[in-house]
Design a protein around this nucleic acid. Structure first.
Length: 667
DNA sequence: GTCACTGATCACATT
DNA sequence: GATCAGTGAC
């Protein structure tokens, strides 16, 4: 529908001050003029360029509240965020303002939203509704299988590894371009393999389709396909969700933009919020261009900038501005604050990683003693493994922490193993899980599992098929006990946690055999995992959640599950720190080779690393410490890391104060 | 032909 | 810690 033909009956009421009283909340009092403007503009496309700490979340919260107060049905509001947590937090804050009226707002990530819609309409695309979601390592397993079936692993010249193949296919999906374009742009050295990669892509797509498997990208791709191919459904959904808000728009990709465009097709009521200076997810196909092209996608877009920073003191902002000022491209905003006074950020050079860790540990204790609560302190780093040494140091000082980012609990082999059994129960056609489960059996390798699987999937009831299969000797007994366990766990009357217990009981001997060294630790993990699953009533729901929004804590932190971070210090990758803030922030490993990482060499990648440093610095409210160890030998590359991060080059001492570490031998 | 085990090699960020 | 190639055992 063009702009002309669309009836636009909405008129913004004039608002003399006395009229404002009809609202419970005094929006003008609560928000600055730009924020207010954003909160009361409900019709038509709106782009909010919100700088770091500019009260973006607050604006979104008040905007939802305002809509509900104006009588807009909460069920017609869709809030798409980067993590489920972000959505939950916002909706809780709205609830605090208005009570439970707003609990019918739909909120979540693009992926979880796609999952919800596809569970309902997947059959329109020829999928079973009980599809299984493949996480990254599942997808890699499939790629591996295909690669060996196509005989590409035996090729004389080396063929790319499964991670690389998947990365290429994933980028092609997210940027909605062909494999050839991805190769041209990012993997020119693999252009010779274009044909084979294309074949793998086709094979992979068909393989998943036949078995009702969807990877992360499929959730989005098929949602788009659904909307494009079924206009009447698109119309209906568009009508259901008449007010759409997309947070962190700078980290969305072309595919997501397409979805937003289609969803809003009948009304154009879309608010995109983001900050071009904080775009840090290009590895997921996100491009900062997306946010700039929003007005092209939605002609007539109103643009609002939020430039006042309420988070950080002036000295912290000075440093942040300095970091981003040196970027090659320039950004749209200039942040300012009224929090003039404050402590200057500090740059600490340490002789070794140990000294860096000791400095951080000691400083954290000092801050804590001077009254900063531990949950108000965070240590940020480029890569998850950068904190290993510090974790030991913190343990020594009895400082407990939650770690965000990095390997997740849910991704460990033993958890994935038991989940695979449950996934078979939920989707008996799930060949990926069948493989995983069969390969666990002693005497069953790649070949026999293919044979067994062919037999199993051919049977009208795969479980009967398994029970009927005749293997040789020990293999046969193993298969029988697997069949038995699956039958038992399949009982409709069981809750997910109980089903899991059946599987764990069956799996324990396998675990013992395969991981005899750290068997007890892994067994504890499994126990803990059953506790996590107790809140679920539906197996499908639980499995989707585990794939899309798994418990956030990383491996060793399960005990502080999803840690409402009570009393705990935070360790986090910068990526996982997006949108968060702390009174005091440490950025460690600010050294060339680690940050920026050695793997990112071209200009665009380096620009993104710079934005990453900017994101890190702008997390701090009052205290910011940047540190780097010097003269570190990097074994992986054989390089000596001996220069501070280029992003700190040339920053005047009055903005970033270098500090010497003094030895006070306490050991 | 098939599988299990050993030791060398390499490791960025995430829905 | 996970993965891969190589090797010996059945």
């Amino acid at each position: 529908m063009s702009d002309e033909t669309r009836p636009d009956r909405y008129t913004l009421r004039p608002e003399p001050d006395d009229r404002a009283r009809r609202f419970l909340i005094d929006y003008k009092e609560e928000l600055n003029p730009s924020q207010y403007e954003a909160a009361v503009t409900h019709k038509g496309p709106l782009l909010v360029l919100a700088g770091a700490g500019s009260g973006k979340t607050r604006t979104l919260v008040f905007r939802v509240a305002r809509m509900v107060e104006e009588g807009i049905d909460p069920a017609s509001i869709l809030l798409l965020t980067f993590t489920r947590r972000a959505a939950e937090e916002m909706l809780q804050r709205v609830e605090a303002l208005l009570g439970s009226r707003c609990d019918r707002v739909t909120g979540g990530t693009f992926h979880s939203f796609a999952n919800t819609i596809l569970r309902r309409y997947a059959q329109l695309l020829g999928f079973a509704n009980a599809f299984t979601i493949l996480d990254r390592s599942d997808s890699e397993d499939v790629i591996n299988l295909i690669r060996s079936r196509m005989g590409l692993d035996k090729k004389a010249l080396r063929f790319p590894r499964k991670q690389t193949i998947l990365e290429i296919l994933s980028l092609a999906a997210n940027k909605t371009c062909g494999v050839a374009a991805v190769l041209n742009e990012q993997f020119p050295h693999l252009l010779d393999e274009l044909d084979e990669l294309g074949q793998i892509a086709d094979y992979y797509r068909d393989y998943k389709r036949e078995r009702s498997l969807l990877d992360y990208d499929d959730l989005l791709s098929y949602l788009r396909e659904l909307l494009r191919g079924h206009p009447e459904l698109a119309e209906r959904l568009s009508h259901t969700f008449r007010y759409i808000m997309v947070d962190e728009y700078q980290d969305t990709n072309r595919l997501q933009a397409d979805i937003v465009r289609l969803l809003a097709h009948s009304h154009d009521n879309v608010m995109a919020v983001g900050d071009d200076a904080q775009s840090i997810y290009s590895f997921r196909g996100a491009t900062v261009r997306n946010i700039f092209e929003f007005p092209d996608l939605f002609p007539g877009t109103k643009v609002i900038k939020l430039e006042e920073n309420y988070r950080s003191t002036q000295p912290i902002l000075d440093l942040s501005n300095e970091i981003i000022l040196q970027a090659k491209e320039s950004y749209t905003k200039n942040l300012f604050t009224r929090r003039e006074a404050g402590i200057r950020p500090v740059l600490v050079e340490a002789d070794s990683e140990r000294y860096q860790s000791r400095f951080v540990g000691q400083k954290i204790l000092e801050l804590h003693e001077s009254g900063v609560p531990l949950p108000e302190i965070a240590v940020l780093f480029r890569s998850s493994f950068h904190s290993f040494d510090l974790e030991i140091e913190l343990g020594r000082r009895n400082l407990q922490f939650v770690k965000r980012g990095g390997f997740k609990f849910i991704e460990t082999t033993h958890i994935k193993d038991v989940l695979a059994h449950l996934r078979i129960i939920a989707n008996p056609q799930d060949a990926v899980s069948w493989y995983r489960v069969l390969l666990l059996l002693n005497g069953v390798g790649a070949k026999s599992s293919e044979r067994i699987l062919a037999h199993v999937l051919d049977a009208p009831d795969p479980f009967q098929g398994l029970a009927a299969y005749r293997g040789r000797g020990a293999v046969n007994t193993a298969l029988k006990s697997l069949a038995e366990a699956l039958q038992q766990a399949r009982d409709e009357g069981l809750k997910p946690a109980e089903q899991l217990e059946v599987i764990v009981r069956y799996y324990e001997p396998i675990l013992k055999h395969r991981h005899h060294d750290d068997y007890p630790k892994r067994q504890k993990d499994l126990e803990h995992f059953t506790i996590i699953t107790e809140r679920y009533r539906s197996l499908d729901r639980m499995l989707s959640d585990m794939a899309l929004e798994p418990p956030t804590s990383s491996v060793d932190n399960v005990l502080a599950t999803d840690g409402e971070d009570e009393g705990l210090l935070t360790l986090s990758t910068i990526h996982s720190a997006k949108g968060l803030e702390w009174n005091s922030v440490f950025i460690i490993w600010a050294v060339e080779g680690r940050f920026p990482s050695l793997y990112n060499k071209d200009d665009d990648e380096l620009e993104e690393e710079r934005r990453l440093m900017y994101v890190a610095a702008t997390r701090a409210k009052e205290n910011l410490f940047i540190s780097y160890p010097i003269n570190i030998y990097d074994r992986a590359t054989g390089m000596l890391l001996n220069r501070p991060s280029r992003f700190l080059d040339g920053i005047p001492r009055r903005i970033l104060t270098p500090v010497m570490l003094m030895e006070d031998d306490d050991e």
